[in-house]
Design a protein around this nucleic acid. Sequence first.
RNA 1: GCGGAUGUGGUGAAAUUGGUAGACACGCCAGACUUAGGAUCUGGUGCCGAGAGGUAUGCGGGUUCGAGUCCCUCCAUCCGCACCA
Length: 924
Amino acid sequence: MEYNFREIEAKWRSFWAAHETYRVTEDPSRPKFYVLDMFPYPSGAGLHVGHPLGYIASDIYARYKRLSGYNVLHPMGYDSFGLPAEQYAIQTGQHPAITTEQNIARYRDQLDKLGFCYDWSREVRTSSPDYYKWTQWIFKQLFDCYYDNTTKKAERISGLVQQFEANGNAGVSACTDCETIFSAAEWSAYSPQQKEAILQEYRLAFLADSWVNWCPALGTVLANDEVVNGVSERGGHSVEQKLMRQWSMRIKAYADRLLTGLDTVDWTDSIKDMQRNWIGRSEGAAVRFKVQGHDEEIEVFTTRPDTIYGVSFMVLAPEHPLVDQITTDEFKEGVDHYKKISALKTERDRQSNVKNISGQFTGAYAIHPFNGSQVQIWIGDYVLASYGTGAVMAVPCGDQRDYDFAKHFNLEIINIFADVDISAEAYTEKDAVIAHSEFLNGLPAKAAIKKAIEEIEARGIGKGRVNFRLRDAVFSRQRYWGEPFPVYYENELPQLVDDAFLPIELPEVDKYLPTEDGEPPLARAERSAWKWFAGDRMEHNTMPGWAGSSWYFLRYMDPNNTQEFAGKDKLEYWREVDLYIGGSEHATGHLLYSRFWTKFLYDQGYIPFDEPFRKMINQGMILGRSSFVYRVSHSNTFVSASLKDQYEVTPLHVDISLVENDKLDIEGFKAWRAEFAHAEFICEADGSYLCGHEVEKMSKSKYNVQTPDELVDKFGADTLRMYEMFLGPLEQSKPWDTKGINGVYNFLRKLWRLFYDQNGNLLVTNDAPNPESLKTMHRTIKKISDDLDRFSFNTGVSNFMICVNELTEQKCHNAQILKELSILLSPYAPHISEELWAILGNAPGTVGTQPFPVFNEAFLVESSFSYPVSFNGKMRFKVDLSLDLTAKEVEDHVMAMPETAKWLDGNTPKKVIVVHGRIVNMVL
RNA sequence: GCGGAUGUGGUGAAAUUGGUAGACACGCCAGACUUAGGAUCUGGUGCCGAGAGGUAUGCGGGUUCGAGUCCCUCCAUCCGCACCA
């Protein structure tokens, strides 16, 4: 009887479903373990073989932890709001909910085929009203809180208002954009509109006019992490800077804690560093410069206050609010022109023209706060409006960009470094001694920075300050398929919808496009289309994709709770995710936002932990292996790979299903597309057409997508699971190649043959296991658990192969051994393990809840060791010696051997190193 | 430019603490068997060499009895960030 994976896998899939084998409930008597996958966006293309890589690893680990006695939470769901379903809706008019539903069904089917042990009763979907009710609820809490720098946590706005009423805002230390200082009396005199405008500058979720990444092609704003190389991450459309009234999240408030929290989690250095860079903490000082002839002052941020005597000019961002005020009539035209050009430039243009120095003098002068000299004020787009104060003090001798700017516009360069040559470039190291700088003279940079800040503060012209690159995250999108805000407007004041009326559900609209006047799609909804409506209008924006994914891991703990986002007892039991597996592409998006929300919910006492993901592993990307045919230019003739250099050719992607071992299925190719029906071929000598190949990202457009479905169909889920693990270390990215899958398939068949012979006779015996087999088994137990503990799934598969090879050699069909092997293998290959477990006479469906086999070192004890004997570190021969021999006895034995005499060639070794049970080395 | 990672056979890779480099598998070569199968079994397979042997973990150096592993210089590839003051 052959290994019939089709029958076996179908049988156990339905058994597990019928018996709810993987359902979990809270159980205080057992320790918990939470294993989480990054939930997928259910796209129309379905899963390719790259997607399940991480899911397989986490599934193996979850099963391993279950065997080890843990109560394991291992859920799955869908990040089901998003762009593709909406684009499809725009094109076809079909409601995105329908597309989403279909895609989810396809995903579920594909996931089920792989035999994952998800507790599907806990499934979440971000687009389900039962779920986004709580996304809206969390938004409300963020709206109703501010960040208090004194208590170092989020606090309620009502407390802030009390402070304003009692003392104004002078004594409040909060994370805010508010620069106005007001007294209690002034506060109470403000109109409701004015009060709300001020509160918006404190709220953690707030409305503000801000410079945003506007993507005209998508008709929406994008967050910084959604803009890559100056174009939109999705679709690659150009992005420009625009001042718009948008919802934002004051993530800056958490910058410091997001940074320090990284020290407490077990993530890779690369992800941590990406987040650190993204947060971009820099220490320095804010210094105010007076503008000659104006009351206004310009504040700059610098990390090098020690170089302040090197300031020879100042540069403002073109968008800086004071530019118009200070520009003199003479330069007005030039400044206006420059501002216009900058505004038209897309983000990409600004980035790609790094070496293009441009700027414009404003005609205004600032007064140097220490030496009183006049410094020209310029505008230039190398200064960013959104970083620091949007203005810099230019120190050409110490900053290369300032240096280049000064050279280009022939501005003064003052050298304030002792014994440093700056004739060719700026000196940017922090190790020079400061000169020509009055009270800073003779100090090395580090001491000078400290001294300069003290002096700046003493003179009241500025302050030491820590600045972050991290910007507040834009939180609204001009889209249909996202969470509606629980907000309505009265006299243009945003009002929160009462909890009792949540969720605010998406209203039906006639079209999914923005309105003719550029309003978001929700503006199309009739008043009656809203199930709940108040005020003058509802909020028309929707939340971004990262809203729902910032807290989904909490909902799995209590997915059907209608009273809370998750019950206190459940949160207290499951706590943070113990193991999170997913791609590293979310380093500065999802992984930062979910940490932010977690810290906020912790501050407000809703959850008992402030980091969501204790340990994270980032699986590598599985790349596709694309195949190419080579079309001779201006013809319908294709030339085989080895001959292509003799022609002028264009490579074309060809569907990998038409190619086997680089050989093209010519008839299939002709039938593939009408344009190729009459193609001619210039072939190899043997008449075959060879394709070229290249490793690329897997994508539909490259025709290199391999779906798991066809492989499951051909080889079974257990084989695919093990093969994906066998490919190499989980974290490494690797090209997909099915060549080796036979090896894994053969392994499972070989395993099967330990149970049945070719004629279907059961071979299992019940006699006592022999010592050899026990040794094999216990060595395997040790290796498999060690491999799992260090997430080395690929060597795990190898060790199973070694084990089965050895047992086959030993003709071992012993029930006790095979029983342990079935348990051991069940995390990797759950279907066949259940089958074998049942064959051995155990209760069906219970292999996954057995105790993990106990390693007994006694079976491994060896009496002798084959010592490698090396000379000057080169191994020459081996000798079997008893492990009872002492080092001296080993040495004596080896010295007496004829082989030793041969290699010594008459010499006496200077030294003989004997490491007991390891090696003998002679030093000549 | 800054930060992170990775370089080992024809291929995917292994070597967890410095101790036999290449486990396991693919592929390839030779053979056996046969109900000719994507089957199974046996032997071989880093490179050079007929062999003895030599040589080999990106390059070059160092530490050590002994280095893929530790230290230094350099090179290449991949990923992330990038006018961040």
